[in-house]
């Protein structure tokens, strides 16, 4: 059995197992698991609008998931997706509240470009320091997270504080910068097309391009990749920058598409979820797409479950965490089994 197929199977089985355990937990609320999951699926995919909502939920997760996947895939550990997302989102929002009268098409393009650039730059810094001075990028990116997040908090409470009521947010950005909602009932907006293009590019880069191959070899044995003529340092920075750009895009789309302003809590840990997803599928981009879809379905459906059946949405988080645990256990178990099988014949 090929390695890839085996991993895929493990992820699927783990999710199913987690759902079984989740089903048992539902019994505590005197809800039949079948009803529970039915509501969950219906709540996520029951009609057009629900599907829209689920996809809207999927966008930031898939982008941060791929952001983490691409850097980890190359063997450089960008733990800073959260900070890159925040900073990009804030800068885009700051631009959107400051400048008015730019033609819509141009403003959209400009907003996305600036957001991507800011995210990329905030990732370039640790990437460069890592390559040039061998500073540990994990520590760096974690610290840069704090800097970015506190900086934006300061800005939303200071210079860019909203004049329209609630605290911890900027004003609404110029309408010329809005990705319009496709339907008023869901957050899904035209920004999703930008996300689709980005995802397609990343899949190409990681699975079909030479670069993806070189990145993988860099992770598996840096010395070997250098020996084979891979320009190690440049590739490493590149992976980091692309990673930051994706995280930046996630933040940009949240501002330009979902909220039309910057909020302090704009990312409730999207990047951490993305990281878990990416690691779960061993940085495979297709795997990230599949698991972030499953995750979005569970979250969307979880809301409905709480609404209708009175099951707290935290149940969904429990199921998700269980799935992660099962995947981890599954990998080590299957390694053991395959070793034994190889031995027994």
């Amino acid at each position: 059995m090929s390695e890839k197929y085996r991993r895929f199977l493990i992820v699927v089985i783990s999710f199913l197992l987690a759902l079984v355990v989740g089903g048992l937990l539902m019994l505590f609320y005197k809800v039949s698991p079948i009803d529970g999951y039915k509501i969950m699926i219906l709540g996520a995919l029951g009609n057009k609008y629900m599907i829209y909502s689920t996809f809207a939920r999927m966008v930031p997760i898939i982008l941060t998931g791929l952001a983490v996947a691409i850097s980890f895939h190359a063997g450089i550990w960008n733990i800073g997706a959260q900070g890159q997302l925040y900073l990009a989102a804030f800068v885009v929002a700051a631009m959107g509240v400051s400048f008015h009268g730019v033609p819509t098409a141009m403003y959209l393009l400009l907003g996305v470009a600036v957001g991507i650039a800011v995210g990329g730059l905030w990732a370039w810094l640790p990437g460069y320091l890592r390559v040039k001075y061998n500073v540990n990028e994990v520590v760096l990116t974690i610290m840069l997270n704090s800097i970015a997040i506190y900086f934006t908090t300061y800005m939303t409470n200071g210079p860019f504080r909203t004049s329209q009521g609630s605290l911890g947010a900027t004003n609404v950005i110029d309408k010329g910068m809005w990705f319009r909602h496709i339907n008023p009932l869901s957050n899904l907006n035209t920004g999703v097309f930008v996300a689709i293009v980005a995802v397609a590019l990343i899949v190409y880069l990681m699975l079909f391009a030479k670069r993806g191959y070189e990145w993988k070899m860099m992770r598996l044995n840096p010395r070997f990749s250098i020996y084979g003529g891979v320009s190690f340092k440049r590739n490493m920075i590149l992976a980091m920058v692309i990673s930051g750009m994706l995280a930046g895009l996630a933040g940009t789309l949240l501002v330009m598409g979902d909220y039309h302003r910057f909020l302090n809590g704009i990312s409730p840990g999207y990047s951490w979820t993305g990281m878990i997803l990416a690691m779960m599928v061993n940085y495979d981009p297709i795997g990230v797409i599949i698991t972030s879809f499953m995750y979005a379905v569970m979250i969307s459906g979880g809301l409905k479950m709480e609404l209708i059946l009175g099951i707290p949405q935290e149940l969904v988080q429990i199921i998700f965490v269980l799935a992660v645990m099962f995947v981890t256990a599954g990998y080590s178990l299957s390694n053991k089994l395959s070793n034994r099988m190889q031995e027994e014949g």
Binding site: K210, K216, L220, N221, R223, S225, Y227, G228, G229
Partner: peptide
């Protein structure tokens, strides 16, 4: 240590240096 990536496949190891 230098000539191979033991965790990569034979294909990935054989193509190294030829990839360009």
């Amino acid at each position: 240590r230098t000539g191979l990536a033991p965790l990569a496949s034979i294909l990935e190891n054989i193509i190294m240096g030829h990839q360009n």
